[in-house]
């Protein structure tokens, strides 16, 4: 009974992979000792990914395995990356809406005042938007009041 999925990986290949893994381990230690600055992390991760790929492809024999198993593993890895990336979208930019200095507040107040003044130039007919506004117009109320109408009774 011979199945192509039961590929026997030669001893030599396994030994070579093991050797490469050891070399990479030494390499990552050396790289960490070098003053790489901001490159420290990417280099370490790159080497780790290389090691992981060797383990997955040869020791775990994914290279010789059915494609569905590779697909499974790739999808799993993809979602780990998504998890980390999207969380960092938040944590790396946390507080980007935090700019509420007095200057910002002043500016907003000024814009609001301006807008309020502009509204004074319009007639109630021009300001009406909803059916309720038109009803209010007929009852001779100010259109702008309808938005407060339904909260009024609770106060």
């Amino acid at each position: 009974m011979s199945h192509d999925s039961h590929h026997i990986i030669p001893f030599k290949t396994l030994a070579t992979v093991f050797g490469a893994l050891i070399v990479l381990t030494v390499l990552t230690v050396v790289a960490a000792a070098l003053p790489l600055g901001p490159l420290d992390m990417p280099v370490a991760i790159l080497i780790a990914v290389a090691k992981a790929s060797l383990v997955v492809l040869y020791f775990m024999a994914l290279k010789y395995d059915k494609p569905v198993n590779s697909l499974t593993f790739s999808v799993g890895t993809l979602f780990v990356v998504i998890f980390i990336t999207f969380t960092l979208f938040d944590t790396a930019f946390r507080g980007d809406l935090g700019d509420v200095s007095s200057q910002t507040v002043d500016e907003i107040t000024r814009q609001e005042t301006e807008a309020g003044e502009r509204q004074q130039q319009f007639t109630p007919e021009q300001m009406a938007v909803s059916p309720a506004d038109y009803e209010a117009l007929q009852n001779n109320e100010s259109a702008a009041d309808t938005t407060t109408a339904d909260t009024a009774d609770t106060e």
Binding site: V75, T77, I84, L88
Partner: peptide, 25 residues
């Protein structure tokens, strides 16, 4: 059995991923 095992392995990977996220953050 093999596909089942690979699926199990990715659940393991995702279990650890939580810790890696905490580390990264």
């Amino acid at each position: 059995a093999k596909l089942g095992m690979w699926l199990f392995l990715i659940t393991e990977v995702l279990l650890f991923s939580g810790m890696f996220v905490a580390y990264a953050v």
